[in-house]
Write a protein that binds this DNA or RNA. Structure first.
Lengths: 215, 215
DNA sequence: TAGATTGTTAATCGATTAACAATC
DNA sequence: TAGATTGTTAATCGATTAACAATC
């Protein structure tokens, strides 16, 4: 199930979804083969890096003069990313962000199936958003165990984030995707990925500053 | 205005907001001085890296045996990140994610002031979310120029993202923060940061896979 | 064939870590 | 003073790029 080559670097892994999107689009335009140089110019990476990345995930090599067979690449990347075996996920915190994620169809394309949301507020418990229901957090453990849920998405206010995280871990979750602006502790063996908007914004601001200095 | 040292690496910049959050919290607990070793263990980075990072943003050095003066560090990081001069931003696309961002108070703490949202749908134009109004996209240029808006946040469906981005650039925006799952083109001199959820999810999945192999 | 494009090996670049002297 | 902690210089590690032979 899922990713084959665990030896791929973090950097390589993080580029894969973008390659996949690009390749799917080119394929839908009727392209059959694609060169690393073409991918490189369109995607702002070097051609050598593209070849290295493709070599890492693909079982077949590209053909000199022709390039890489797009359908094959798509298959290989999909399998590499584990999109062939969708993971179940739940959202904890049905606030603005939680609701937005409930309605985001795209996750399915990324190998993740969001089943439901959980919250403590009576105002949202029982409501449905985009055909997905919000349950009482008390029902979370049963739900997770019954539905083979492996990912917990945390979209609660930061002061509740650690305790919700602990609860998810206790329920046997395999990975926590944290959107609260706080550093969480998870035990060894549980995967954690925190989205830090402040960090991204800092990078953007730095780029803006850099540009303004150049002019 | 804003960031001082442009020589800081991307990696260093992206760690700064997390340091800042941590230092603010320790300060609120009554701490006056802090050692790199303490920051390191609490934040899962090495102590040497903490010292290197601090040295890069701070005008004063730490004191042997005592550590770093927290208030001073906080000031220095805030100035480094440009939090002393807040940037104005607008959101384009008042869907689920756009609305969630309108309601997110945290951006102000990160040096960004979201003024309003824009959309094409008559259903949302004129509405208010968390005291912030949704305007017709047609009014965007005037608004951006009148209110000194430097950041455009794109939360529209991906098929509209590039044209909205072009429009923002035409309005003189300095930086684009893109949440649509698509690679955008911006001209030289305009900063771009794309949040790629698929990419983050791929990293999380990879970690989960890695863990499952170890057991 | 000639030429475009691949895959591989070595070099470079950037970021992190190790070692250790300096200092309060 | 002794010891904790800093800042700096060198070493290592990881990722990207350059060079180039292989090949269809």
């Amino acid at each position: 199930m899922g990713m084959n080559n665990v030896n791929a670097s973090k950097a390589t892994i993080s580029r894969m979804p973008a390659y996949l999107r690009f390749l799917r689009e080119e394929f839908s335009k009727g392209m059959k083969y694609i060169s690393s140089a073409y991918v490189a110019t369109e995607m702002d990476v070097s051609a050598i890096l593209v070849r290295k990345d493709f070599a890492l995930v693909s079982s077949v090599s590209g053909k000199p003069r022709l390039g890489f067979e797009i359908t094959r690449l798509i298959q290989d990347i999909e399998r590499f990313l584990g999109y062939d075996s969708v993971r179940n996920a739940v959202i904890v915190g049905a606030g603005g962000l939680g609701k937005a994620f409930l309605g985001y169809e795209g996750f399915k394309k990324y190998g993740m199936n969001v089943l439901a949301a959980f919250d403590v507020s009576k105002e949202v418990i029982g409501e449905e958003f985009f055909d997905k229901k919000v349950y009482d957090v008390k029902e979370m453990e049963a739900f997770i165990r019954e539905n083979d849920v492996s990912i917990g998405i945390i979209t609660v206010p930061k002061k509740f984030a650690q305790s919700i995280c602990d609860e998810l871990v206790r329920c046997g979750i395999k990975g926590v995707w944290n959107f609260a602006p706080i550093q969480l502790d998870v035990p060894y063996g549980v995967a954690l990925k925190t989205e830090d908007l402040a960090s991204s914004l800092a990078i953007l601001s730095a780029k803006i500053m850099e540009n303004s200095l150049e002019q």
